[in-house]
Simulated scan of single mutants.
Amino acid sequence: MSRSSFVSFHYQNDHWRVQQILRMGAIDGQEIMPAQKWETVKARGDNAVQHWIDTEMAYKGAVVVLIGSQTASRRWVKYEIQKAWMSRKPLLGIRIHALKDEHQRTATAGSNPFAQFGFSDSRLTYADFVPVFDPPGYDSTQVYASIKNNIESWIASGYRRS
């Protein structure tokens, strides 16, 4: 059964990997915006990008951050994580660097994007609460199978702030 989720990721590096995951059918409600349309939204400015994210995320049941090699450094991924946290949406990460891209290459693991968000009253970060799943496998095919077999339960176990 698919689950309505907002998918956050670094478009330029990971759109091919993300397409593989969306085609699994476990995440409902979001298609990857074609590059040309994304560039059109970005050209209208930051308010337009924020509006697009806010609208797309509004009625989704969870937020899934698909973590590639540079995801943690992306400005709009950071915004999406904070938006999900403040909206109290279930939030989780799945590492996708071991899936092959359109050039049949894998990438290195990126840093945990949740570790950069802390709290004023403690040393804890979002990473202390939000699960990040690192699919096992020796190659892209095994990692793909692991994601396909587990993604629904991973989404169901996303951290929800009370």
Rank of each mutant, 00 (worst) to 15 (best):
Y59R: 15
P34R: 08
V77A: 07
L92D: 06
M86R: 13
M57Q: 04
K78E: 08
E56C: 07
E31F: 11
L66R: 02
D46P: 08
G29I: 01
G29W: 02
G29E: 03
M57T: 04
R75D: 07
R44I: 02
S73P: 02
S69N: 11
K42N: 09
P34W: 04
A58M: 12
K37A: 15
A58Y: 03
H51C: 09
S69K: 10
K60R: 15
G61P: 01
V49T: 06
S69W: 10
M33T: 09
I67N: 06
A72N: 09
E56F: 01
M33R: 09
P34M: 06
W52E: 08
K78G: 10
K37T: 14
E31P: 01
V63F: 04
L66H: 02
W76I: 01
I32S: 03
K37R: 15
P34A: 07
L66C: 10
Q36N: 13
D46Q: 14
A62N: 09
I67R: 05
G68N: 07
T71N: 07
H51G: 09
R44A: 15
L92I: 06
K60M: 11
K89S: 07
V65W: 04
G61A: 13
V63P: 03
W38G: 05
N47S: 14
V49H: 00
D54Y: 03
L91F: 05
G68C: 04
A48P: 02
G61K: 11
E31T: 10
E56N: 10
R74E: 08
R75N: 08
K37D: 15
G29L: 05
Y59C: 13
I81S: 01
D46V: 13
E80V: 03
G68T: 06
E80T: 04
K89D: 05
W52V: 00
A84F: 03
S73V: 11
A62M: 04
R75L: 10
P90G: 09
R88S: 12
K42L: 10
K78V: 00
V63C: 13
K60H: 09
Q36E: 15
M57G: 04
R74K: 12
L66T: 05
V49R: 00
V65I: 12
P34D: 07
P90W: 01
G45N: 04
M86V: 13
A62C: 10
V41R: 06
A48Q: 07
S69T: 12
R44F: 10
W38R: 15
I53R: 05
Y79A: 04
I53H: 01
V49G: 00
T55A: 14
K42P: 02
Q70R: 13
K78F: 05
V64E: 01
P34K: 05
Y59H: 15
Q82V: 12
A72W: 06
D46L: 15
L91E: 04
E31N: 11
Y59T: 14
S73N: 13
Y59G: 15
Q30A: 08
M86Y: 11
W85Y: 13
W38P: 02
R74P: 00
K83Q: 11
V77K: 00
Q50K: 15
M33A: 08
W38A: 12
I81D: 00
S87N: 11
Q36W: 11
I67F: 04
G45Y: 02
V41S: 00
Y59F: 14
E80S: 06
W76N: 05
I53M: 10
